Amino acid sequence: MFTGIVEILGSIIDIAPLDSSESGGQGFSITVGNAAEILTDCHLGDSIAINGTCLTVTQFDASSFKVGVAPETLRKTNLGSLKVGDAVNLERAMNAHTRFGGHMVQGHVDTTVSILSRTDDGNAITFVFQVPEEYKELMNYIVPKGFICLDGTSLTVIDVDDVKRTFSIMMIAYTQTRVVMPTKALGDQVNVEVDMMGKYASKGVEAMIKRFLDGEEGEGMVAKVLDRVLAKRASTTN
């Protein structure tokens, strides 16, 4: 679990599409450098979020660490497009003594969204993002003034347009110097994780409504509503 408060910016120092080393496991691996600040208490198997993606440390030294990236993760995130030298947002998994400055972030990226526009507003920047058509159901969990996690950064949603599948956030000057998003161009992909509390609430309500409608109580309620509608129409006709 994470808070969405980026600790430091690391940099990619190696990418191995088929890492045959013991720590690579014959899969895709990424090695991140300039990370000494968050490795003082690191252990093998620890979770570190790279651009908001929860990954497992398979090897580390004083200033760098390696993670393996599963095929599903490559499909859902922007990690596969990273290049050596790219900066990445880093956050260690939260501990019991962490101040909860962001929101509950799992590090389980839903998909990537594209940067549609960026507009300076005083010393802040307003970014507008578009959700892909095939993931339009995610708009159900994006609400004005709600939480959203973008490349591992906890941010507040400003506006939402469900028809255009867009939403916006505003980034203050302090955050701009401590995360990767201001360095990205229009059209670039950003990892998005919608608020998981919205997902749980939605699934719970859907399940409750389904049980209600499938049960005798639900059938009775539907019958009553139909009776009222028919009675109202009959009285209007007469």
Score class of each variant (00 low, 15 high):
residue 123 N to I: 07
residue 123 N to L: 06
residue 124 A to G: 08
residue 125 I to Y: 00
residue 125 I to D: 07
residue 126 T to W: 04
residue 126 T to G: 00
residue 127 F to L: 11
residue 128 V to Q: 15
residue 128 V to N: 09
residue 129 F to C: 02
residue 129 F to N: 02
residue 129 F to I: 05
residue 129 F to M: 04
residue 130 Q to R: 15
residue 130 Q to L: 09
residue 132 P to E: 06
residue 135 Y to I: 09
residue 135 Y to F: 14
residue 136 K to T: 14
residue 136 K to D: 15
residue 136 K to E: 14
residue 136 K to F: 13
residue 137 E to D: 14
residue 138 L to D: 12
residue 139 M to S: 14
residue 139 M to N: 05
residue 139 M to W: 08
residue 140 N to P: 12
residue 140 N to G: 13
residue 140 N to I: 08
residue 141 Y to F: 12
residue 141 Y to T: 14
residue 143 V to K: 09
residue 144 P to C: 04
residue 144 P to R: 08
residue 145 K to A: 02
residue 147 F to G: 13
residue 147 F to R: 02
residue 147 F to C: 06
residue 147 F to H: 10
residue 148 I to V: 14
residue 149 C to Q: 12
residue 149 C to L: 07
residue 150 L to C: 07
residue 150 L to F: 03
residue 151 D to E: 11
residue 151 D to C: 04
residue 152 G to C: 11
residue 152 G to P: 09
residue 152 G to W: 06
residue 153 T to E: 03
residue 154 S to N: 12
residue 154 S to A: 06
residue 155 L to Y: 12
residue 156 T to V: 05
residue 156 T to R: 00
residue 156 T to W: 01
residue 157 V to H: 07
residue 157 V to T: 07
residue 158 I to L: 14
residue 158 I to T: 15
residue 159 D to A: 05
residue 159 D to Y: 08
residue 159 D to Q: 13
residue 160 V to N: 02
residue 161 D to W: 01
residue 161 D to K: 11
residue 161 D to T: 01
residue 161 D to R: 01
residue 162 D to Q: 15
residue 162 D to K: 12
residue 163 V to C: 14
residue 165 R to H: 07
residue 165 R to E: 07
residue 168 S to H: 01
residue 168 S to G: 05
residue 169 I to G: 06
residue 169 I to N: 01
residue 170 M to S: 02
residue 170 M to D: 09
residue 171 M to G: 11
residue 172 I to Q: 08
residue 173 A to K: 11
residue 173 A to R: 08
residue 173 A to P: 00
residue 173 A to D: 11
residue 174 Y to E: 15
residue 174 Y to F: 14
residue 174 Y to A: 13
residue 175 T to F: 01
residue 175 T to R: 01
residue 176 Q to E: 00
residue 177 T to D: 09
residue 177 T to H: 15
residue 178 R to L: 04
residue 178 R to V: 02
residue 179 V to G: 04
residue 179 V to M: 10
residue 180 V to G: 03
residue 180 V to L: 10
residue 180 V to Q: 00
residue 181 M to K: 09
residue 183 T to F: 08
residue 184 K to G: 03
residue 184 K to Y: 13
residue 184 K to Q: 06
residue 184 K to I: 02
residue 185 A to N: 13
residue 186 L to M: 10
residue 186 L to N: 02
residue 186 L to P: 06
residue 186 L to G: 05
residue 187 G to R: 04
residue 188 D to C: 08
residue 188 D to R: 07
residue 189 Q to K: 10
residue 189 Q to R: 03
residue 189 Q to F: 08
